[in-house]
Design a protein around this nucleic acid. Sequence first.
DNA 1: CCATGCTCCGCAAACGTTTGCGGCTGCAAG
DNA 2: CTTGCAGCCGCAAACGTTTGCGGAGCATGG
Lengths: 341, 341
Amino acid sequence: MQTTVTLRDVARAAKVSVSTASRALAGGGLTSRATENRLQRIAAELGYRPNTLARGLKTRSTRLVGLVVHNLTNASFRVLAEVVQRRLRAEGYQALLCITADDPEQEAATIETLADQRVDGLIICPTGRNGALLAALEASGTPVTCVVRRDESVELETVLAADPEGAYAGTRHLLDLGHRRIGLVVGRQETTSGRERLSGYRRALEEAGIAFDPSLVHAGRYEPETGLSGCRQLLDRDNRPTALFVANHESSLGVLRGLAERDIAVPDDISLLCYEDVPGFAWQRPAISVVDSGANAMAELAADRLLQRLRPNAAPHVATAREYRIGARLIQRQSCRPVAH
Amino acid sequence: MQTTVTLRDVARAAKVSVSTASRALAGGGLTSRATENRLQRIAAELGYRPNTLARGLKTRSTRLVGLVVHNLTNASFRVLAEVVQRRLRAEGYQALLCITADDPEQEAATIETLADQRVDGLIICPTGRNGALLAALEASGTPVTCVVRRDESVELETVLAADPEGAYAGTRHLLDLGHRRIGLVVGRQETTSGRERLSGYRRALEEAGIAFDPSLVHAGRYEPETGLSGCRQLLDRDNRPTALFVANHESSLGVLRGLAERDIAVPDDISLLCYEDVPGFAWQRPAISVVDSGANAMAELAADRLLQRLRPNAAPHVATAREYRIGARLIQRQSCRPVAH
DNA sequence: CCATGCTCCGCAAACGTTTGCGGCTGCAAG
DNA sequence: CTTGCAGCCGCAAACGTTTGCGGAGCATGG
C-alpha cells in the first residue's frame, strides 16, 4: 500500500496552500497563469490523482450514474448498456451497471444501494413494482429516466419503443403481401410491450377487415421455448397460417427450429417476420425481414435526456416528466413473399 | 433537493453522540444491546442511509470493483459481465462497468478513472498495451485480475480459457471422424487466443501424422465478414475440405452464410464445428457441435479469485500472481459426421 | 499622496463518516 | 471504604477535497 499522493503533497511541493493548489488544478482562471502551469506540472510529476470520494463528498456530486437492466442477453438491454455507457463516458460520467433479472426484490435492493452510492442520476428499465423508490429518488434530487419499460405507478421521464406502431407496420406489411392468416407469437400480456404489440397486430387486421382469431396468437415468456411451442401450435392447425410474425425477439430461435424440424421452408412455404434487428437475422440465409424497434435510438435518447437534466441549469424535473417514443422501422429482407393463391 | 438525513440527525434524535450512533448502527457489539436496537429503530424511522462517500473516504474502501471488457456483444464478455456482477453483489460489492472497444487509449483512460474512483479491485480483459498502469494499480494495493486475455507485459493474476486444449480437442474430434482436410477459420494471430487455437489445431494434426497445410487456415478479425471470406476461400480450393472448424465464434455467422449461399448442407456435404456454446448453436437446425471454452467458469473463477484477495486477511498478492486455465469441453450435436470414403 | 479597484492567494470551515483514546458509571473484590 | 475492572459512551481528529471570505500586493486614476 503505497502512500498515495494527495493535494497537500503537491501544495507542499509547490510551496503554496492547499486551496491554491485546488484552484490551480481546477483551472478556472482563479489563479495566475503561471502558478496554474507550475502546479499542473508538479502534480503530474508527483503523479497526483484527485480523490473522487473526497471531491464528491464536498461537491455533492459523484460523477456516477446507475444503469439497471434486467439482463445483458436481450439485445435491447445489451445495446442499451453499450451506448449509455459510451455516451456517459463522453461527458465524464461513469456507469454503475446493475442487473436485476427482472426481479422486484433485487431491483429494490439495487436502487437503495445506488442511492447510498449517491449516484447523480439513474437510467433504469423498471420492473414496475418499485415506483415508490424511484419517485423518492427523483424527489430527493436525483433524476431518473426509465427506458424500454414504463413504471405505470409513477410519473417519470420515460423513453419507449413505439410498439403499437411497430407491430402494426409489421402485420400491415404481411397483409400487403396478401397474407390473411397471420400467426403471431408475442410476449406475455402482463408486459407493456406484449400488450402493445398485440394491439398493433389487431389494429392492422381490423383495418384490413379481417376478423381477429385468438387461436392465431401465442403469447409467452421471452424465451426460445415459447417460440418453439408457439410455432408447433400454429403449424398444427388445420388451416395453417401463411405467415408468422414473431413479435418477441427471444422466441425467434424457437420458431426457426420449429420450422426446420417440419421442413417448412422460408419464404417458400411460409413467410416469416421477426422483431428486433440483431446481426444474426441479417446474416442468416434467407436473411430475415424484421421490424426494428430502434434499440439504439432509445438508448441514445435515454442517455441524452438524462444528461440534459444532469447539466447545471437544473430544469425543474417535474415539468419534464414526459414520455418519448422511438419510431419502429420495417427492414425488408428475404423472408417474406407474396402469398400464392 | 431534500435535506438528506445524516448520522448527526439520528444521533441528535436519539440524544447520543455521533460516535455511538455510528457504533450502534455498525452493530459490532460496541454499544449496549439496548442503544443498538434503539438507534436501529430511530435510523429506520428517520430514513437514514449512510453516505458511502464519507464512509469510503474514512475507511479507504469503496465497495466498488471495476469491470472492464471490450464489448458486450461477444458471448464471453457478456456472461463475464453478468456473472461477475452477480457474484460481486452477493458479497456486497458493486460493479463499475467499462467498455473499451479493445482500444488501448480508452483502456488507459478507463483504468485511470477507476483508480481515481478508488475501486477496491479490478477485473479486466486487457488489451495488452497498458501493463504498466495495471501493475501500478496492483502495486498501490488494488488487486487486479485479468480474464479472457492476458497482458503479456506484466505478471498479474490471470484466468484464461484452455485454448490450446480446446482447439486440440476439436480438431481431434474431427480427425477421429475420419476427416483429413480440415479447414480452420480462426482469430488474428496477434491475439493470444488466435495463436493458441491455431497451435492446438496443428498439434492434433501432427499427432495424427497429417502435414500442416497453411492454405487450409484463414485467420481474421472477430467478425462475421471474416467467416464469410474464409468460408469462400476454403470452398474454392480444388481439394475442398470435408470439415470446417470455426475456432472464432464471431465468424460463425459468416461461414454459415457462406455455406448456405453455395447450398452446401451441414452435415451431409461438410462437417462443421464451432467455438463457444451460445444458445443459437443449440437451437439451430442442425444443432451445431461446439467446443465450449467455459466462459461461465472463467467468469466465476475470476470473481472468486478477486473476491478472495479482497477479503481482510490480505494475502501477499505477489505470491498469488498465477495463471488459471479453464478446461474446454466438446459438445457433440448434429453438425459433424464421419467422412464418407 | 490617497482612495479605489483588481488580481492572486491563504485561512478555515465544511462535507459525513470512523475510530483511538480517555472518562464516567457501577459493581465486585479486597 | 478503597481499588480494580468492565462496559458504555463522548471528544476530537482524521480522511482529501472545495469554497466563502478576507488580506496582501500592486497599479491606476484623481
